[in-house]
C-alpha cells in the first residue's frame, strides 16, 4: 500500500505548491481542496490496508469538513471581491495596528 500513500503524498505536495504559488484566491481554495482530497486518499488507503472501516469513516468526516470549509471560504471570497474588486490575495495584506 505504499503506492497509495506515495500517490497521496504527491497529490498533497502538488496542492501545497498550488496554495503557495497561486495568487488568485480561487486557486488557493482549489489547492486546499486538492490537499484535503489527498489526505482523504491516504486515510482510505490505510483503512484498506488494515481491513477496517475506520479509514472510510475519517474520509467521511474529511468530506463534511471540506464541504463546510468550501462554503465559508467561498462566501469570504465573495466578500473580498466586493471589497477589493480583485481576486488577488496579495491585496489583502494590510494589517491593522
Amino acid at each position: 500500500m505504499e503506492h497509495g500513500l506515495i500517490l497521496a503524498g504527491m497529490l498533497f505536495c502538488i496542492g501545497l505548491a498550488g496554495v503557495i504559488v497561486r495568487r488568485n484566491i480561487i486557486f488557493t481554495l482549489l489547492s486546499i481542496e486538492i490537499m484535503l482530497n489527498a489526505s482523504g486518499l491516504a486515510f482510505v488507503v490505510a483503512g484498506s490496508r488494515w481491513g477496517q472501516a475506520d479509514g472510510q469513516i475519517i474520509f467521511i468526516f474529511i468530506l463534511a469538513m471540506a464541504a463546510a470549509e468550501v462554503s465559508v471560504g467561498l462566501a469570504l471570497l465573495l466578500q473580498l471581491y466586493h471589497k477589493f474588486k480583485t481576486l488577488d490575495s496579495d491585496t489583502a495584506s494590510r494589517m491593522r495596528g
Binding site: 463546510a68 462554503s71 465559508v72 462566501a75 465573495l78 466578500q79
Partner: peptide, 12 residues
C-alpha cells in the same frame, strides 16, 4: 456543517 451553513449565509 451547521456552523458552516450559518457562516456562509452570513458572509454571503
Amino acid at each position: 456543517l451547521l456552523v458552516g451553513l450559518v457562516g456562509a449565509y452570513h458572509l454571503g
